[in-house]
Simulated assay, not measured.
Amino acid sequence: MRLGLFIMMIAAGAVLTFATDWELEAVDLDLVGLILMAVGFLGTAVYTSVLRRRRIVVPPVAPTTTHDRHGLL
């Protein structure tokens, strides 16, 4: 699952909750939309925290110089 999937879940949940007025007998679409948004927000938070831990910051390496026998480069 990538970040785009979680963002699509948030968008789909928002559409179901706020932009539709469909009525189904067995399913409350407002609740389904809220659940999709909650899962999308939770997934985004978990994904970004895991991604932040994977990044490894490597300090720059100082250039090394070599000297020959006489002390000159």
Rank of each mutant, 00 (worst) to 15 (best):
Ala12Ser: 12
Leu42Trp: 08
Leu5His: 11
His67Ile: 15
Thr65Glu: 15
Gly33Tyr: 01
Ala45Lys: 13
Phe6Gln: 03
Glu25Gly: 15
Val61Leu: 09
Asp68Thr: 06
Tyr47Phe: 06
Asp28Trp: 03
Ala45Trp: 04
Val61Met: 13
Thr44Glu: 04
Ala62His: 05
Val57Trp: 06
Ala19Cys: 14
Ala11Gln: 05
Trp22Met: 14
Thr20Phe: 10
Val58Arg: 14
Leu31Phe: 08
Tyr47Asp: 06
Val46Thr: 08
Ile10Asn: 00
Val32His: 02
Pro60Glu: 01
Val61Trp: 09
Asp21Pro: 04
Leu42Phe: 11
Leu36Glu: 01
Thr48Tyr: 10
Tyr47Gln: 05
Asp30Ile: 14
Ile10Lys: 01
Phe41Gly: 04
Ala12Thr: 04
Gly40Thr: 00
Leu73Pro: 06
Glu25Val: 09
Phe6Gly: 06
Gly4Arg: 08
Pro60Val: 03
Glu23Ala: 15
Tyr47Lys: 00
Ile7Trp: 10
Gly4Phe: 06
Thr65Cys: 11
Ala12Arg: 02
Thr44Asp: 01
Leu72Trp: 15
Asp68Lys: 13
Val39Lys: 07
Arg2Ser: 12
Arg2His: 07
Thr65Ile: 12
Arg54Pro: 14
Thr64Arg: 08
Val39Thr: 07
Leu3Gln: 09
Pro59Asn: 13
Thr65Lys: 07
Leu29Asp: 04
Thr44Tyr: 02
Arg55Leu: 10
Trp22Tyr: 10
Gly43His: 03
Asp28Gln: 03
Leu24Ala: 07
Phe18Ser: 02
Phe6Glu: 06
Phe41Trp: 12
